[in-house]
Design a binder for these strands. Structure first.
Lengths: 308, 308
DNA sequence: GTCCGAAGATGGCATAGACCAATGTGGCAG
DNA sequence: CTGCCACATTGGTCTATGCCATCTTCGGAC
């Protein structure tokens, strides 16, 4: 084993951990003495490896190859199945791309970063107001048919539910309905859900969000929604629906939100240049660009929500 | 090994397969003689096991336990990691539920049944219908104030304008208004703009599209739009506005389109894994996820338009 | 009878190793 | 120089095995 490489790898991870040499499992150790029963949540090697791979991804340009699996195994002192399970996760979330016989590469999602300084031709200067939130109601209730189906739990399963009014510079912008199964994070309090960085609270409970599927469609507001948002009845609005999964693929959050259409819009920067033939066959088309309009290449996009 | 059980298991699978005894890999064999090179796609054990588990699920009532992992391994003559990877797949799709120390159970039926279709609907954009278009009107007219400003030409500058009705399987889906300055491609005809792959026609005239900025907002249809789209008046709709630049950075196309809201929606697959700290200033937020909600990392997304 | 603890069963994580399949490379024959 | 083939590299799949964490069960102590 190359000692130098090994040292570098370990330093890049977290070195101040306690390793159970008989099992290979690693535990956080806040106190001096660790008892098996009093041990905190074990640090899974898979997650340690995944975090290291994330650093690799950050420090490599898109499209660049990362070291071969067997090399990474030696560097990180883990077995190949363990390393592969970590890579699997990043491949599933689209950050890495595997090619049989060639290697593993950082996904070409560069546009996301190009956007930050993109031309604001169509966008207003946008000083990005201050987002706050006001809790409308919260409760622990049965999931019900619709939400239960989405979250893949029994309709009778208890979920933590919270409705929030999201404001920008004090003006109502959206209504947000958040649903989290109690089973996912038993210790999760309503206070946790009220906080801004809700996903960090989830992480505190050992739930690490990984990916989500979100759909957007237009709608109009009803009486109650109009009153909350301060818009006329039947005013145009955007309806968001999002199902979030954690790293184990389990649905952990279902969000249903309504954004006022007069002050919120979606802005995308698109790259239309002929690009790679796309390893994974995608049948879809980019919103607003019907299939066939752009015969060559794929549309890559970076999208933001924009307050007016 | 329990021979009886083993027999049952194999019978439940497919017994007429050819097994490579040196590797354990199994291949379909249509011809009598199988050569390595001529072998069809290998049958993955994982998939065989998964299919067997699916039969188990069908023959067991919801909530019933299935045999323990180690038992299934012996019955199916596979290793435990292989068996587990198959179970993983079914757990992720919601057909099975694992409980540490208790066992693995068939998920409550109704949820899973609906889930499968719901999951498909949320993730896999089904093979969309056939897109066609019908020209509503076309002309060469002065740009006017609004369009001229977008395309960065004089309001008096002449532009080629065309309005099209976009249909999916013959049903109206969107109205599209296309504007191209005559100066950009003097030889461009209205026929060129009628064609499907309009960007290829532009390329023929030496104009290569590079990128675009597109905004999306909700609106409602007016009388004329409702008549064209075949929806009620004041029906929710998505308003797209797109400004396309060529490789020299010059605006070459301004598109303004209206998609009916009842059959068209935007579906995004989001990656929430902690990623790069974003070198540039991060002013934007992903639509539907207010800033601060996801403190660590960036959202990467793949977005498609979805016809319902 | 009730309570508690040990034992067994079960899922969860990880290892080391083997072989297959796809890809790229370099040398050799023409 | 071109074309072909062997070889090295890399990801893909599977095996056999070990130990830990959690839950259930059952028997003994009280």
């Amino acid at each position: 084993m190359a000692v130098n490489t090994q040292f570098t790898a370990v330093r890049a991870l977290s070195i101040f951990v306690e390793v159970d040499l008989t099992t290979g499992l690693t535990y956080w150790s806040a106190t001096g003495k660790t008892k098996r029963g009093g041990m905190a949540e074990p640090i899974l090697k898979r997650e340690r490896v995944r975090d290291y791979l994330l650093e690799l991804i950050e420090t490599h340009p898109p499209g660049a190859p990362i070291p071969a699996e067997r090399v990474l195994c030696r560097q990180l002192s883990v077995s190949r199945p363990t390393l592969r399970s970590a890579v699997d996760e990043l491949v599933n979330t689209g950050l890495l791309i595997r090619q049989h016989g060639r290697g593993t590469f950082v996904a070409p999602a560069k546009i996301t970063q190009e956007l930050v300084s993109a031309d604001r031709a169509m966008t207003v200067p946008q000083a990005g107001g201050a987002w706050t939130s006001r809790v409308l109601e919260h409760a622990r209730i049965p999931a019900g048919a619709r939400v239960g189906r989405r979250l893949r739990v029994s309709p009778a399963a208890e979920i933590t539910y919270i409705a929030r009014l999201r404001l920008v510079d004090g003006a109502p912008m959206a209504i947000e309905y958040l649903h989290v199964p109690v089973a996912v994070a038993p210790g999760l309090t309503v206070q946790d859900m009220e906080s801004g960085n809700f996903y960090d609270r989830l992480a505190d409970h050992g739930v690490h969000v990984s990916d989500a599927v979100q759909s957007i469609e237009p709608t109009v507001t009803n009486d109650a929604e109009s009153a909350l948002l301060g818009v006329p009845v039947f005013a145009p609005a955007l309806l968001f629906e999002r199902l979030t999964n954690d790293t184990t693929g389990r649905p952990v959050e279902y969000v249903h939100s309504l954004y006022r259409g007069d002050r919120y819009r979606i802005v995308s920067k698109l790259s239309l240049a002929p690009s790679a033939p796309a390893p994974g066959a995608r049948t879809g088309h980019h919103p607003g660009i019907p299939p066939g309009d752009l015969s060559s290449g794929q549309v890559r996009s970076a999208t933001t929500g924009d307050v007016q």
